[in-house]
């Protein structure tokens, strides 16, 4: 069988696939793989936004730069929130894998949502403060690239939050059926992936800007 070379069970710590019939396993395999491919395409997009940011790092055109605008503490707490939410989603996956009951699942999903929402709230607050200081995206090429890069991540988080809500509803309607499970796995990949992008953002954007 060319299609299935390894046991998928360990790979997607989210789904106990071993007892399912082969067709279901294969479908899940390709569904998840397809989502990986999408994430990689998305990663290229982020990578290019980083590259553009890098080339525009000094294009402040006399306007405000990172030294004045970045807040160390909010960057730190945002990071903490997002990392914790990633851990919380890990618990979602575990509850699903070991069939710990819907309540656990819903609980951790809820926690993930709150942490993500908290992150987004802080980020929006930061943006508004910057706007208030006159650091708007129209001010300079540097600020344009900053807002598009970080804003794009924020937009992804917003999409992730919407998705979490949607999955909550689907859990209520269908219970954890196959499709809900596959989508929870994909959502998990998405959420951890956003965390990963954020790691690069806080390193390359915030810490670089603050280390001067």
């Amino acid at each position: 069988m060319a299609r299935l070379t390894t046991e998928p069970e360990l790979r997607h710590a989210g789904l106990n696939l071993a007892d399912d019939p082969r067709e279901v396993r294969e479908q899940v395999e390709s569904d998840v793989f397809g989502f990986w491919v999408f994430l990689m395409s998305d990663a290229v997009m982020f990578a290019l936004l980083f590259a553009v940011y890098g080339t525009m790092r000094h294009a402040t055109a006399g306007g405000p730069g990172p030294e004045q605008e970045f807040k160390f503490h909010s960057a730190f707490w945002e990071t903490a929130l997002l990392l914790t939410s990633s851990f919380a989603y890990g618990m979602v996956s575990l509850s699903m894998k070991h069939a710990r009951g819907q309540l656990w699942l819903a609980l951790w999903l809820g926690i993930t949502f709150c942490l993500g929402a908290g992150f987004l709230k802080m980020e929006i607050h930061d943006f508004l403060t910057m706007f208030h200081d006159g650091a708007t995206p129209e001010r300079s090429g540097y600020l344009s690239s900053f807002f598009v890069l970080v804003g794009m991540h924020g937009f992804h988080v917003l999409s992730g939050l919407t998705w979490i809500l949607l999955m909550g509803v689907q859990l209520a309607v269908f219970g954890p059926d196959d499709r809900v499970k596959v989508n929870l796995i994909r959502l998990g990949l998405f959420w951890h992936f956003l965390d990963l992008i954020w790691v690069v953002i806080f390193s390359v954007v915030y810490l670089e800007g603050l280390s001067l």
């Binding site: 070379t5 390894t6 998928p8 360990l10 790979r11 997607h12 710590a13 395999e29 793989f33 990633s86 890990g90 990949l189 951890h192 992936f193 965390d195």
Partner: peptide
């Protein structure tokens, strides 16, 4: 978190 590793994960 993403369970990618050199040994276990599928090649793809």
């Amino acid at each position: 978190f993403l369970h990618i590793s050199l040994k276990r994960s599928a090649r793809a």
